[in-house]
């Protein structure tokens, strides 16, 4: 009965191994000797040898990989070359802000997508129903074609530069210097200020999160919307819904039938979108100086900060793997066809 879940969890181990190997391999391929990058131009011959030994770079490839896995499992991702801080700590400070942003973005996409998609699917074939469906198709193509960062900039131009009703795109808490803020328990400024009870700051943080979240919603809601409209239509027209209506199953139950059956493709699509948003957030974060994982990544890439690049690759891959695992688990609980049969067939 639980075999499926066990097998699914067991599959995580090779996945994580390969992912860590790829992250390791990528850094090995980086141009330039990391020792030289660490020590900078003012280095001595002995210094280079000592550092090489310390980092274990004189050892064979697989020994190095083994050490890397060992360190990573213990949560040691090395230090950033630029800030000299442990990478794991910096990720710990920045990843929550990004997860917060993309989670809000995903929630917005799912709420809008499912709401509008459901209405569109059940709309009449004439008049406003036709109009709604056509607009959704056109909007879907359009939104899919626009870069998210550009849409963010347009919002900045309209709501900050022109109308002046939303704060400048300068971080989660505009007007406060990040380093002066006490480290909150969540590392998400909006939540931290709320926990602290400073509702003035929390209000600012809330207003600052409107534009980035709306940006994600504008660009990515059509993904959920489309799948919702298509699957809901399909399910509504399905033989089993028609059949249930024809024997007088009440409306509430019909709605449940539609929801439960349309849920699976919507969950899958939303999950894939969630994983995608982590990459997409890099750009939106840049526009709004969000100070999360995305900007950290960009800085690391531009500075060839290899430990950070390695760390962020791992975080991104693990995030994706976890999201896909969640999708499979939801499928398991919603769709009986996945479960091993417990009832003899006729």
């Amino acid at each position: 009965m639980r075999k499926f879940l066990l097998r699914r969890f067991a599959f995580l181990i090779p996945q994580l191994f390969v992912v860590s190997f790829l992250a390791f391999l990528l850094i090995k391929l980086l141009p330039g000797d990391p020792v030289l990058i660490i020590l900078g131009p003012l280095r001595t011959q002995e210094g280079v040898i000592r550092e090489t030994k310390r980092l274990g770079l004189d050892k064979p490839f697989f020994v190095q990989y083994g050490r890397y896995v060992e360190r990573t499992v213990q949560g040691d991702f090395g230090n950033s070359i630029v800030t000299k801080q442990p990478v794991i700590e910096e990720l710990g400070r920045r990843v929550p802000a990004t997860l917060w942003l993309i989670t809000l973005g995903l929630v917005a996409c799912v709420v809008i997508g499912i709401g509008v998609g459901y209405v569109a699917a059940l709309a009449p074939p004439t008049g406003w129903g036709t109009w709604l469906n056509k607009s959704i198709i056109g909007y879907g193509f359009l939104a899919g074609a626009l870069p998210d960062f550009w849409v963010g900039l347009i919002l900045v131009f309209i709501f900050f530069a022109t109308l002046g009703i939303l704060p400048a795109p300068i971080g989660q808490l505009p007007g406060y210097i990040p380093s002066l803020l006490p480290d909150g328990p969540t590392n998400i400024d909006l939540l931290d200020t709320l926990i602290k009870g400073d509702f003035g700051q929390a209000g600012t943080a809330f207003r600052a999160s409107i534009m980035p979240v709306v940006t994600l919603a504008i660009v990515y809601a059509p993904v959920v919307l489309k799948i919702t409209a298509v699957t809901t239509t399909e399910v509504f027209n399905s033989q089993y819904v028609t059949g249930a209506r024809a024997v007088g199953v009440r409306r509430r139950t019909i709605t449940r039938y539609i929801m439960r059956n349309a849920l699976l493709p919507i969950v899958t699509t939303s999950g894939v979108l969630y994983a995608f948003l982590l990459g997409g957030a890099v750009l939106v974060e840049t526009v709004f100086s969000w100070g999360g994982f995305g900007q950290y990544t960009v800085d690391a890439v531009n500075a060839l900060d290899f430990n950070v690049i390695q760390g962020m690759m791992l975080v991104a891959a693990v995030f994706t793997i976890v999201v896909y695992l969640l999708i499979d688990i939801i499928h398991y609980f919603v769709d009986p066809r996945i479960r091993v049969s417990t009832v003899g067939s006729s």
Partner: peptide
Amino acid sequence: RGLEMAMIVPGGKFSLNPV
């Protein structure tokens, strides 16, 4: 529907809610 008149649809298992 159901109480006074009801329809028997074709399609076997495809006409039953799969979940």
